[in-house]
Write a protein that binds this DNA or RNA. Structure first.
Lengths: 240, 240
DNA sequence: GGAATAGTGTCTCTAAGACAATATATG
DNA sequence: CATATATTGTCTTAGAGACACTATTCC
């Protein structure tokens, strides 16, 4: 049996799924879409990660496909976007051998287009609880979500990643709070501030944030867009 | 225009490529295969990463496909295997919109089947130089290789990953030497030994390695197969 | 002044960097 | 003993953990 150079038949299905994360209501939340109820659609009416088939007419590449799906659901077009990995097997989709390329996008809640990402009946934000969400997800999306959450939490230990969950201007207190929400544990204030300021990833803006009491300095990420890697992880504290 | 639930046409090609790494001749080396010269094959005669189309009849999942390709080329069936990521675009393969799922496998040189992985005319080991190899690679394989090398070097800074490039029993000196080959810089002997022993990832065997002079203690990875993550990176030393 | 949040001082502790010193094998 | 490699001792240093203290705002 000879192997065809480019098999015309027997090609797996190719999809892209996007784990869209933000901070809302004091919690890390993920955007879910409801599966259509048309006949022939698998998992009708169930919640799933936004995603779908690669459109080889419209999509130039996988990242472009992920950005398209993100923009369709949220209106956001330049988030922090990172590939999580790919999954593929004979059984993960009842329609046949299928693969998915999983991306995760981090956004600030405030950057969401107001009419999108929350009002449509087939869209909802679900708070992250442990390794997933409280509703069951279609396909193997619970696995994909778990992997993305593992990635976010892992990188939160030693990179500036969570800064991308905030609007451009933020205080050190807000930044620390996001780290704590993602990690699910408190961090030492002094060590946190020292690390962030020593890393040189922030620029201090002249202005202050006028909250109830003493105003805090505002900071912004320096022009670089990428992540800053710290040489140490946050260490586990004894007293939770 | 309605979107079909499972597009019968317009499916991208789906391949898996494997970056197979080992230490030979005092260098990190990667296994390359020569592209076939049959008409219709892209990049005839050029060197490439081992890989090919997912066979939906034989492969249960992507990792199984990667393991199959690894075994075909090297005879090894249980290496350290990790997914690097996936690539896909309209232009990366002249035959059409294509995706590839990239895995990397780390092996000990000694575990290679002797008749494979080196003697066949269409297989060769190429030493890693900088971010790639000295020969040009087919497709976008230079990018894929670069990503895998970045992953290996990154994880070498803060995990036990390079231990999987050695045979089961090794000395701390050999382990440090592998770290240094991967990173391309010397490490402090005392700090290295303290870190490795404190991490509790090794078990000391009673026996010693009989080399020319004073014999060294032999160690073996504890039963766990996974990686151990250190809480600090190796830091850059001033004097190279 | 009281409350609340922002920001600092300072002590301890761990593990890395530097590098010298000692230990154990062969010839 | 000379030599080579293995292994340990020890001093310094950077940065995290702990936590108390000061600073600035509104009321």
């Amino acid at each position: 049996m000879t192997k065809p150079a480019a098999p015309a038949f027997g090609r797996p299905l190719t999809t892209v799924d996007v784990v869209i994360l933000t901070i809302r209501a004091e919690a890390l939340q993920v955007l879910l879409v409801q599966r259509p109820r048309q006949p022939g659609e698998p998992f009708p009416g169930q919640w799933a990660l936004p995603g779908g088939f690669v459109d080889i007419e419209r999509d130039q590449d996988l990242q472009g496909c992920a950005l398209r799906k993100l923009a369709e659901k949220t209106g956001v077009d330049s988030p922090y976007l990172e590939q999580v990995g790919s999954w593929g097997s004979a059984t993960r989709d009842p329609r046949g051998w299928s693969t998915t390329h999983v991306y995760m996008a981090l956004l600030a809640d405030a950057t969401l287009a107001p009419q999108k990402g929350g009002n449509a009946a087939d869209l909802r934000w679900a708070p992250v609880e442990g390794d997933g969400v409280s509703v069951p997800l279609a396909f193997d999306h619970a696995d994909l979500l778990g992997a993305a959450l593992g990635r976010v939490r892992g990188k939160t230990e030693y990179t500036s990643l969570p800064a991308h969950l905030l609007p451009p201007d933020f205080t050190l207190g807000e930044l620390q709070h996001v780290y704590e929400l993602v990690l699910g544990r408190p961090l030492e204030k002094k060590a946190f501030r020292t690390r962030m300021l020593a890393a040189g990833l922030l620029e201090e803006l002249g202005t202050l944030k006028d909250t109830g009491r003493r105003p805090a300095s505002l900071y912004r990420l320096r022009e670089q867009s990428g992540l800053v890697y710290f040489t140490r992880s946050f260490e586990q504290r004894e007293r939770a």
